[in-house]
Nucleic acid binder design. Structure first.
Lengths: 233, 233
DNA sequence: CAGTGGTCTAGACCACCGG
DNA sequence: CGGTGGTCTAGACCACTGT
């Protein structure tokens, strides 16, 4: 019997997804091959292929040559979130962004940093601490380290107008990055910068980037009280 | 002059990306059109199209009909993270997973929950609290609400063997989800469940799902001390 | 309105890997 | 080994939107 004649990879994708949701295709079950589906939908195989590839990218099905396409038994959905760009984040809230440099210093890299980034034993780094405000209330405290041997021009940048992140993205790209989130307790110093009480929970992001294996920078970002990172999917 | 003859969308993608990184294509600059690139690379336009589409998906370029493709001025990289599946998460650490139901109760939905999910005024919900252990040490405390009118079979499930999440993914799919992360302070109760001190920072995830607009479930997930959510990109 | 990306097609060859 | 998905091609039509 003729299926609906509406084509388009979006339709194919939505239709397969519907059948998965309704249990027509049960978890673990193998789906018809691309050729067969192309016939059913009355479209080219490439169209089916694109639909299935997206379903696979989004974690609904597993595809393997010869083995075919199977509905994932445990649907591991994945969500994408935008790496927070502080200025954009604040301005998106309709608030004015303000930046302030707290401290700037060239120093030998501390041991933990060398270990984390894989720095050379004698490496020197630029250490910056700064504040980001939304409407003049503290929003984020940034504790950043930049590898001078990979980004030598950092040594001569003042960082008194633009934050290190904005500066870095214009100076140097990166190829690998790692970001992790956790909850930490505010130290005495930090609590003053962020206008909170010592020991209060702080949402903390820690991010490292490399350029083809060479350590570029490391930052700890401490968010003021009440911050939430949200995403829909 | 002839460019390299190696084709493949992966090559095209990598080559364009390299030129972006090296500054050959500066931020904000417009790239050659697909036809032109196809000639340069000696391949079909569809091949270039796929390469460019992926670059766009990954946030390196912006594409618009008629306007062409531009290098993103502020590279907003996006990272994908897997929605944490507690059992898998713990077993991936090589530890044994254990689940325990703490409390189970059908109740009228509290006001904040109705507001958050968009529940009907007279809605009744199933409220569950449970613990997840890794190697018998507390890993996560779960505070979950399930909408009985959308998932009626929940009323008759005991939840004494399997956690609500594992049960739900087998019972009902969802179409929309929202997840947010924050740092909260451990309440007296919570600190006992997670074996920590009251007031200590707790990494907290809050997740809501809907099925075609109908509220399905809401959960607050409190992670034991020291938890980090990490992703590479 | 015209140029760009978005999508589809029909056919082809190939790599991989399950049986 | 043979079937499945992975990819490419040459060509086509179309939707959107900047100018």
């Amino acid at each position: 019997m003729a299926d609906t004649e509406i084509t388009g990879y979006r339709f194919v994708k939505a239709d397969i997804l519907r059948r998965i949701r309704e249990g027509v295709f049960a978890p673990g079950e193998i789906l018809p091959g691309e050729v067969s589906l192309a016939e059913q939908f009355g479209c080219a195989r490439a169209t089916v292929n694109r639909a299935m590839r997206e379903l696979s990218d989004e974690g609904f099905v597993d595809r393997r040559r010869k083995a075919g396409t199977r509905v994932k038994a445990k649907p591991t959905r994945r969500a994408a979130f935008e790496i927070p760009q502080i200025r954009a984040e604040i301005e998106a809230l309709g608030q004015t962004y303000r930046y302030a440099l707290v401290e700037r210093q060239c120093t030998p890299a501390p041991g933990w940093l060398k270990a984390r980034l894989g720095l050379a034993p004698e490496a020197r780094v630029l250490h910056l601490t700064c504040m980001h405000f939304a409407q003049n209330t503290p929003f984020q405290f940034e504790d950043r380290w930049i590898n001078i041997s990979v980004v030598p021009q950092a040594e001569f940048a003042s960082f008194d107008q633009d934050g290190p992140n904005e500066w870095l993205v214009q100076q140097i790209p990166f190829t690998e990055a790692e970001i992790s989130f956790s909850a930490t307790a505010a130290s005495a110093d930090l609590s003053e910068y962020l206008q909170m009480n010592p020991g209060e929970p702080v949402f903390t992001a820690e991010r490292s980037t490399w350029l083809s294996g060479a350590p570029v920078t490391h930052a700890r970002l401490y968010y003021a009280s009440g911050y939430r990172m949200t995403t829909r999917y």
